[in-house]
Design a protein around this nucleic acid. Structure first.
Lengths: 339, 339
DNA sequence: TATTAAATTGAAATCGAAGTCATTATTCAC
DNA sequence: GTGAATAATGACTTCGATTTCAATTTAATA
């Protein structure tokens, strides 16, 4: 008997189809699941009845009985990250190709994390891809306790085995520093992202390390928040405190662009004539002919794919050990550094 | 009895909690649903047992019995739209504030739409917010037949009542045109987005209309695809075919920025000295000091909020008639037009 | 204290598909 | 044509919560 939903319209269930097709409900279920034992004749009858009634299997009921939601939680930050749009669509597409759907969670403040996790447990997601959020031992252990595989994207949990996909920050930053040193820059400045960002800390420290390798010690660091405005502000502060540097190494492209604009527009400087600037990420704006930023481009599509692959592997084989995958970025020699 | 999931770990159900707490399973359910009739004593017992066992209500089971998934499908295009990141997080946040979650769908080619809809029906989403996809009568009628409310974001279905949230393209474009005319521009060019985009068509036609009002007829139009590169290409073609115009009216900011860069970098032109350029949207890059684009900024947050409000209203009251909400954009007088 | 009204409680039905298992229909080999 | 092996089928149980309904307890009123 067709029941009625809140709008008073009947919902068509497998029982309705079964009745019309003159078969059992089990047969209907089998007809819709590929590879199960149904005769062509029965399948035909079922499909005709299903089409006639406009039947679609109810995914919720399936989730309940199969103990698989087919949904993956993606945790993104509400802070507009210029790399997100592509990343998110890539992840969604790769997951879709494997029959999984994305349930979206946003997170800004760390204090919302607990609340977010509460939600996660109730929604029975099969796995999690975290683009945002800082996870510590504690959170990772919770995921383990719930047997929900997690993949961290461009972030890590020190000293704790966990699945991660990272661009090779170390190699990328090193290449940028080498390029700057080899093209004659001597007075360096680093514009770092916020200290609560693991990525920012990594990029900053790798840069300082590599500069030290070349004999440049005590390189001043200014801190921003990854934003355009913070890039501008850093440059302003830098000029006040140290005067014009030869080269600025920024934690990301957005800050680099802010820095360039500030230098050009407010200080009338020529980039790269008077100043070299490098970023990191390879956001679309970095390639605009107004900038043509020297940067390291993250292989977003491959990274998205790796994250999905790793996750799906753990969902199918929960015993697979954690895996850290590091993909090389591509050095883009733009026009914000001297040749 | 606690069952075991695919990972061999026990799942804690309300029955487990009931047994430990020494109450009925019904009581456990009531204790977790606010406003239901449970004594403080019972709730206390239940909560203690729940915490001890690490119990979380299973949202999937709830969805099945309540006929409400609490999930809203958001359809986005895989084409990187610079307005998406903020829009998506806003929508997600507003939905979260009302207890709903976002199930993400991506769509590029129109031929995937049918497949996408098939998925939609099975997932029992309570509603849909479409940021991408061109819907015709046919699709809207399918949604009506399934009793799933839809809100279209910045797009419409002519001659069919359907919920929409739009920025006031007409008013916005008119203000831009007036500004250009009033500041002495006489030779106009329009760079339009693709003809399959309703928004692009609207913006283009409104611009041409308003130019006609001012006596400017036969204004040439060049077509791009909203991308930066297409903005550059349009300007190049324009220069070849018509020489330098006074002012370029672009369908969106990204094309406008492409146009500006092409004019500045490859033609050595001064914007706004030699050329005025206006865009539409108010993407973050439009405000960068390298551009300071004259544009109309969409009130993204308010629009996201309106979309969510309208949708939730239809979910609660399915009989509410379709509603079209139009929000005014803010004219941003930047530095890409003469004063 | 007796009586009525209100608040709690648990048993049982329900949501809609998937999967187990025993039964029946087919197919194949001889 | 018979028996064995295989395929197809349907009855029934299950997933985990919500909700109805009747029974029971508690509170309120006379």
């Amino acid at each position: 008997m067709a029941t009625r939903n809140s709008q008073g319209k009947k919902r068509v269930t497998s029982y309705d189809v079964a009745r019309v097709a003159g078969v059992s409900q089990s047969a209907v279920s089998r007809a819709f699941r590929p590879g199960l034992s149904v005769s062509a004749k029965t399948r035909e009858k079922v499909m005709r009845a299903a089409k006639k009634l406009g039947y679609r299997p109810n995914a919720i009921a399936r989730m309940l009985i199969t103990q698989r939601s087919g949904m993956v939680a993606v945790i993104m930050s509400s802070v507009a990250n210029h790399a997100y749009p592509e990343l998110l669509t890539r992840i969604t597409e790769h997951l879709a190709a494997r029959g999984a759907k994305v349930l979206l969670f946003t997170l800004d403040a760390a204090d919302q994390l607990e609340n977010l996790l509460e939600q996660l447990w109730t929604y029975q997601v099969d796995g999690v891809i975290a683009l945002a959020a800082h996870f510590d031992h504690e959170e990772i252990e919770q995921f383990e306790a719930h047997n929900i595989p997690v993949v961290l994207y461009n972030r890590q949990v020190p000293d704790h085995p966990v699945n991660t996909v990272n661009v090779d920050h170390s190699q990328g930053v090193r290449q940028l520093v080498d390029l700057l040193v080899n093209t004659g820059n001597r007075k360096f400045i680093v514009f770092s992202g916020p200290t609560h960002s693991d990525v920012a800390n990594d990029r900053r420290e790798f840069a300082l390390d590599q500069l030290r390798q070349h004999g440049f010690t005590d390189v001043p660091v200014f801190y921003g928040d990854y934003s355009y405005d913070s890039g501008r502000r850093c440059f302003e502060e830098c000029m006040e405190q140290h005067g014009a540097p030869d080269a600025v190494i920024c934690s990301n492209d957005t800050m680099a662009i802010g820095c360039i604009d500030e230098a050009r527009v407010h200080y009338g400087m020529n980039v790269p004539g008077d100043l070299s600037v490098v970023g990191f990420d390879g956001i679309t704006a970095a390639f605009w002919s107004g900038y043509e930023l020297t940067t390291v481009r993250q292989p977003v599509n491959q990274m998205a794919r790796a994250a999905v692959d790793i996750l799906m592997e753990r969902i199918e084989h929960p015993d697979a050990p954690p895996e850290k995958r590091v993909l090389a970025g591509a050095l883009i020699k733009g026009k914000t550094t001297r040749a």
